[in-house]
Amino acid sequence: MLELRLLQGSLLKKVLEAIKDLVTDANFDCSATGFSLQAMDSSHVALVALLLRAEGFEHYRCDRNLSMGMNLNNMSKMLKCAGNDDIITIKADDGGDTVTFMFESPNQDKISDFEMKLMDIDSEHLGIPETEYEAIIRMPSQEFARICRDLSTIGDTVVISASKEGVKFSTKGDIGSANVVCRQNTSVDKPEDATVIEIQQPVSLTFALRYMNSFTKATPLSNTVTVSMSNELPVVVEYKIAEMGYIRFYLAPKIEE
């Protein structure tokens, strides 16, 4: 028996919007720790890891570990039927082949339940090693989204170079080239507007902008984004989900042939 009641149902709606274009089908894992997901895109180039901690739910009952295979497009269709202010409860029976999403309006005058068929998904769970990253950039998530969107109108790939001077996003295409440099800036009114660059050593990596743009669909979940890089390793683009957990996107770099 599984019953998870989330007062801020809009968080779950936003999570689905953030990942449904990257991943088609995925197993949601439910344990005493929380509600989580790990899935790769169909090309196995990017990986998304989601955690919504048990403490973040108003009610969290998970009698035994449960893995529920869902088609994210179908799940998104169902969650779109929930109002932004609705409370969402996820319910499932052990060994059942459906999951129920229950939506309660804030003043309890409308209660809906949507039952969705589960599916068997063969997915390998990857071990993500603990890494000390050589460059960690925290910046406003909207700024990061803007840069990725702008550069993708010029080129297909972005070179992200981080040094003590700042972080440079560069691209090249048929019509020309572009560079955007962001310097550390902590003299801002609100902490979420700051750009903070922590560098152990300079890092330069090349990535497909198509994936970066897909990750920025998580922008509504957080005012800030953290981009962690080490030379010759996948980048991690992390959006914290207030008081609940995180959504992390890992993207393998491109290398010169």
């Binding site: 790769m40 090309s43 390998e124 990857l126 071990g127 993500i128 390793l233 393998a252 770099p253």
Partner: peptide, 14 residues
């Protein structure tokens, strides 16, 4: 041109 690496060459199946 650049070659796209796969995430599975960095993270191993558990």
């Amino acid at each position: 041109s650049n070659k796209q690496l796969r995430i599975t060459s960095f993270f191993q199946a558990r």
